[in-house]
Amino acid sequence: MTDPIIRVEDIGKTFGSGMRFSLAKQADEVRAVDGCSFSINRGETLALVGESGCGKSTLGRLLLRLIDPTAGRVYFEKTELTNLPAGRMRDMRRHLQMIFQDPYGSLSPRRSIAQIIAEPLDVFGLVRSGRQRRERVADLMTQVGLSPTFMDRHPRQFSGGQRQRIGIARAIAVDPSFIVADEPVSALDVSVQAQIINLMQDLQRQKGFSFLFIAHDLAVVRHIADRVAVMYLGRIVEIGPKKQIYRMPQHPYTQALMSAAPEPDPERKGKRIILEGDVPSPKRVPPGCSFHTRCPIRQEICSIERPPLREVAAGQLAACHFAKPFPIPLAKARPAIPA
């Protein structure tokens, strides 16, 4: 259990107002990520879940140093990434790869599939000849379920799901030990999402890389995660093993998030916790517990004192003064739908 491949200490990112010497500087600062600490073990999948603007994508990019943090440190194995010079950081990228949300934008439109998948191989000099490169690309395409005969085609000829497979092939080309997947299925059709989730799960089992899987709803990561972290306004509010989070979420926000997701089940019609109001702007994070403006169980202390992440069950941490188990009733056994 104690073999973290990624360790994050108190990381933070504040986006400035951009306007130097502006009087409104303080007011325009956006605290996208604020004091997040966690680690990811070898071969483990951590799912990072939160609504738009909670800082989950920024956090994913901070881990890979696609954005430089304004506070805190990130370690990959024994190396601190946050202070590496640019050249050394580039070398580290062989071990750290990323899968993107937008299957349309993340592939260079003018390059062939072979060129796209082979790019990381070329960068790190992992292939010696043109023939070897094509063989490797063909192999990778087969691994992600694409026919190698299409390797000279261009991205625009592929559907969203196929493009996402290309993106996955590019990410696993250099055999990385850690991959950040930023909402990899949220832009895909429902019937294609399952294919991509299964594919990533299979690849992870085969290759044993660690995974940070970012998503905006809890259902999507149910099958792929080992542990789940829930973010709200730049902070992790709850983190723990999958089983416990789904059975017994302890933070009221996690509970609301689970209860709010509409399930494809007409029996559940309208039975849910509905949070009041909107997510506050990250420019004006409420004092105390940042969730207190919408929290159904808030008390006076919540607007004054920020609750720390504390252990509420084995391996499960929640940042709430009044964290308590909230059993999610398991659905009655559903009649099996014939396949």
Partner: peptide, 27 residues
Amino acid sequence: PYTRGLLQSIPRLDDDRDRLYQIPGSV
């Protein structure tokens, strides 16, 4: 069969299947 496949391929919160059912191919 499409409705069946779609319903089964949706990830759900209350679901302990290890693997999602998948409809092959693309739309």
